[in-house]
Computed example of a mutant assay.
Amino acid sequence: MNYTILVTGAAYGTQNASTAFLFCQSLVKTKHKLYSVFFYCDGVLNANRMTTPATDEFNLVEAWQKLNKKYKVKLYVCNSAALRRGVLEDEKKSNLNSKKGNLSLFFQLSGLLELAHSIKICDRIIQF
């Protein structure tokens, strides 16, 4: 089965994102396929490279990046939700007055059209 995961919880402060990550980690170790993870609402904060957890805490932003590198899972971030929460690309990709963005590597800004496409081609969508 093909899965799309929708993450609406911030990296820290709720269990949504960490539970989603654990679920994704389990999926990629089985015969199922994880097509993409879409970060929406406060979930876009999972893509903020300025997030700095304490040294004894799990680094969820880095974990998402490793999931992408190892399993080629697409990490989509809702552009509108990201702008509302201050998650921006670098100036060369954006027309805003910010010189240096804070969008983490391996995350890509996209719109709800990408979520709709993922839902269309996958067997299941699960929201956290």
Rank of each mutant, 00 (worst) to 15 (best):
residue 115 L to F: 15
residue 104 S to A: 15
residue 46 N to R: 08
residue 18 S to C: 09
residue 114 E to R: 07
residue 22 L to T: 11
residue 81 A to E: 02
residue 21 F to N: 01
residue 64 W to M: 03
residue 69 K to P: 00
residue 39 F to C: 05
residue 57 E to Q: 14
residue 68 N to R: 07
residue 36 S to I: 02
residue 18 S to E: 09
residue 23 F to S: 01
residue 35 Y to G: 00
residue 35 Y to P: 00
residue 32 H to G: 02
residue 19 T to N: 13
residue 15 Q to K: 14
residue 86 G to I: 06
residue 20 A to P: 04
residue 37 V to A: 10
residue 127 Q to T: 14
residue 113 L to K: 14
residue 55 T to S: 13
residue 41 C to R: 15
residue 85 R to A: 04
residue 103 L to W: 07
residue 35 Y to D: 06
residue 115 L to R: 09
residue 29 K to L: 12
residue 125 I to N: 08
residue 43 G to R: 08
residue 88 L to H: 14
residue 115 L to M: 12
residue 6 L to D: 01
residue 90 D to A: 07
residue 41 C to A: 14
residue 93 K to Q: 08
residue 93 K to I: 00
residue 90 D to T: 07
residue 34 L to G: 02
residue 11 A to H: 03
residue 83 L to Y: 14
residue 54 A to F: 06
residue 66 K to A: 09
residue 116 A to C: 12
residue 10 A to N: 10
residue 5 I to G: 06
residue 66 K to Q: 13
residue 90 D to H: 13
residue 8 T to L: 05
residue 27 L to H: 10
residue 23 F to C: 02
residue 102 N to E: 04
residue 6 L to A: 03
residue 29 K to T: 07
residue 99 K to G: 02
residue 42 D to L: 04
residue 78 C to Y: 05
residue 52 T to F: 13
residue 118 S to E: 11
residue 95 N to C: 09
residue 40 Y to M: 13
residue 69 K to G: 03
residue 60 L to K: 01
residue 119 I to C: 13
residue 11 A to I: 03
residue 54 A to L: 10
residue 19 T to R: 10
residue 29 K to G: 10
residue 105 L to G: 11
residue 112 L to G: 12
residue 60 L to N: 00
residue 90 D to I: 08
residue 97 N to H: 12
residue 89 E to W: 00
residue 58 F to T: 04
residue 4 T to Q: 05
residue 41 C to G: 09
residue 66 K to R: 12
residue 32 H to T: 02
residue 28 V to R: 11
residue 11 A to W: 08
residue 74 K to A: 11
residue 38 F to Y: 15
residue 86 G to W: 11
residue 10 A to S: 14
residue 64 W to H: 05
residue 94 S to F: 07
residue 71 Y to K: 06
residue 34 L to I: 01
residue 31 K to F: 10
residue 56 D to W: 11
residue 97 N to F: 11
